[in-house]
Write a protein that binds this DNA or RNA. Structure first.
Lengths: 148, 148
DNA sequence: TTAAGTGCAAAATCTTTGCAAATGT
DNA sequence: ACATTTGCAAAGATTTTGCACTTAA
């Protein structure tokens, strides 16, 4: 699990990447670290009405460039962003884990704890990274389903 | 490998799905079966200048609904479509294979021949489908790279 | 003949760009 | 003080919708 972080740690993260510690950036970081699912630009926009749409796009882009978050597309093709493991570097993500996209609530979970089984590709293909996507029912939606 | 098909077979495919055998649909089918990589709407648009942009969107959508093709997003989040295995059904795709996205030519290859190793998800997750995405150099781009 | 499919125009989204004002260091 | 970041307006790009015309069956 990703450990909970406080505001000082978010400020440190921005410092480390030579980013100014602005209110919008700290709020985005805080929101992303408070969830265990990935966040899309619309998710941010729905909550942070006072921050400009464009600013949110720019924050997501710069965080991705710096390796603070990584991008993952959900079943609808919407870009979702999740906080990276400590071993992510700028422009070189180590996001070789499993992404789970719930077909009901649409949330994208990064299952960082699972490692990928190795797989051999046909001759000639030189893979640099792997991601496994699973889709189906997440624990919450599965529970709701069986209760009724 | 997906066997090469002729025009009669494309007409049969449309028949089977209660779709009218129109020229635009036959041309899209023919193009998609002639390649071993997935096709995006822009790909079609670039080649078929005389077919309306909207028609191409609609053809891709109806083919996907009928289970003739399936959608896969590339590294840029662009929707690409690839012809399905015979065991795909309407709205229930069996595309549990490996997708390879080349970082140079951007092509998406469906490696149908590879099956996925089974993987156990954390408790509570009920997966319905899996897809493994790999990205890196495809055989063509790797060859070009090593020649120079 | 008529239901389905296409083309065009226009609307709705989604994302990026340019620039002046505001903010962090 | 100065470079960075933000907000706003506008441009670009992508995808969808409505509707009249055309085509396949």
């Amino acid at each position: 699990m990703i450990p909970v972080k406080n505001n000082y740690q978010f400020e440190d993260m921005l410092d480390k990447h030579q980013l100014k510690k602005t209110a919008p950036r700290l709020r985005v970081l805080s929101m992303m670290y408070s969830k265990n699912t990935a966040t899309s630009q619309p998710d941010l926009e729905n909550v942070m009405h006072d921050i400009d749409r464009v600013t949110l796009y720019r924050i997501l882009n710069v965080f991705e460039e710096k390796g603070i978050i990584h991008k993952v597309f959900d079943l609808d093709g919407t870009a979702n962003y999740a906080v990276c493991h400590s071993d992510c570097e700028a422009n070189h993500h180590h996001d070789e884990h499993v992404h789970f996209n719930c077909t009901v609530c649409k949330n994208v979970y990064c299952l960082n704890e699972l490692s990928l089984p190795s797989i051999t590709l046909p001759a000639g293909f030189k893979p640099e990274s792997f991601t496994l996507y699973a889709s189906g029912l997440c624990p919450k939606c599965d529970k709701k389903n069986s209760v009724k």
